[in-house]
Nucleic acid binder design. Structure first.
Lengths: 191, 191
DNA sequence: TGTCTCATGTAAGGGGTTACATGATTCC
DNA sequence: GGAATCATGTAACCCCTTACATGAGACA
């Protein structure tokens, strides 16, 4: 999976400029690239060189001229082939889990603060993913099947964060029960 | 979060060699680095230069000599400080979702195959995370509180994959219902 | 004979990131 | 006056990855 595939997909919805593509990538959660100029414009030049997209320059008064990119038949073919491939495995990077791994070096209050902090963060992510699902990403589904798929993608984000929220709340609850009921069992407690 | 923090944490459990650290990182799910030589040995040199770890060379007959690294008080302080920091936001990279985003270019059979493929992949991840939780990572918890935290970390992985499995099964089920009941509503179907 | 484990290190390259550069218009 | 939008592109850098290099013993 490279940003080139993402760009081909975006352009398959409608022709647009690198600037438009950049914004879509930046606002998307499933496209994990930053959407910086270097990447997007370089990728477009590459795709153009491979004949997967064509570009048409449109001059504008009092605004910089734009290059409008369109996918070619060849580009659609590459997109179709990539889409059907065995998916690359997901990479779930949760730095918080690594902090939690060594969190026994913290005292009770610090640990509670860390957990509460993460819960709050996840709440925000959950709210944002709901909001993004409501707003959409500026692309229009081309069929009812595509509309269904895109709704499912939004639901994936929401349910992922909801699951994480349930988990962190469980951790907090069980920890408070441990602190209350089983204090005598804990060996390294200072308080 | 850098690999240096992960290494400080690992060494806080017990002194060991770069080679040992490498294996722990490679087998860990929450440490997302590949654990290649370049990274680990370079990080150890850096940590040593900063006085966060010290090393002792042990010569062995008929085996290469090893450098056994130990965290210093200063290193533990840095670990404690980092652990209590505001967690960096999670990065969830699911290439499959990007394939699904453009999957309307596929026909019905191809889409079903893609979904089934992902379900299978997630099943394997779920089984592996359960197995890893059972086996442990070779580090011994230093307190019952740490033991609890590590169990929760394992549960996080399991519940994440379980949630993903439930989701992909829901997608498949709803899609088959759409195909069966609402076929007339779909505009781009070839069959 | 070939491959694996132990054990440390280096080299080369790819991909991603931020920041710079231009330049007119619009909005506060 | 300063910042944001539109629009394209470049430069420098950092992190991470694979692959190479050494070299002895164990195992099939």
């Amino acid at each position: 999976m490279t940003i080139n595939h993402a760009i081909l997909g975006i352009l398959s919805c409608r022709p647009m400029t690198g600037y438009d593509i950049k914004k879509i990538i930046q606002e998307s959660d499933i496209m994990h690239w930053s959407g910086n100029n270097n990447q997007v414009y370089k990728a477009l030049i590459e795709l153009h060189g491979e004949g997967l997209v064509i570009s048409e320059v449109r001059y504008q008064e009092s605004l910089p001229s734009k290059k409008i990119y369109t996918v070619t038949e060849e580009g659609l073919k590459v997109l179709r082939e990539w889409t059907a491939l065995e998916p690359e495995p997901a990479e779930l990077r949760k730095p918080f889990l690594l902090q939690l791994k060594w969190a026994d070096v913290l005292d009770g209050a610090q640990l509670q603060a860390l957990l509460a902090n993460y819960e709050n963060q996840i709440r925000i992510c959950l709210a944002m993913s709901r909001e993004k699902a409501r707003r959409g990403d500026g692309l229009k589904p081309r069929s009812s099947r595509e509309s269904f798929l895109w709704k499912m993608i939004d639901k994936n984000a929401v349910s992922t964060y909801q699951n994480e929220l349930d988990w962190i709340q469980g951790v907090q609850k069980q920890l408070s029960e441990l602190d209350a009921g089983g204090a005598d069992k804990l060996e390294l407690q200072d308080s």
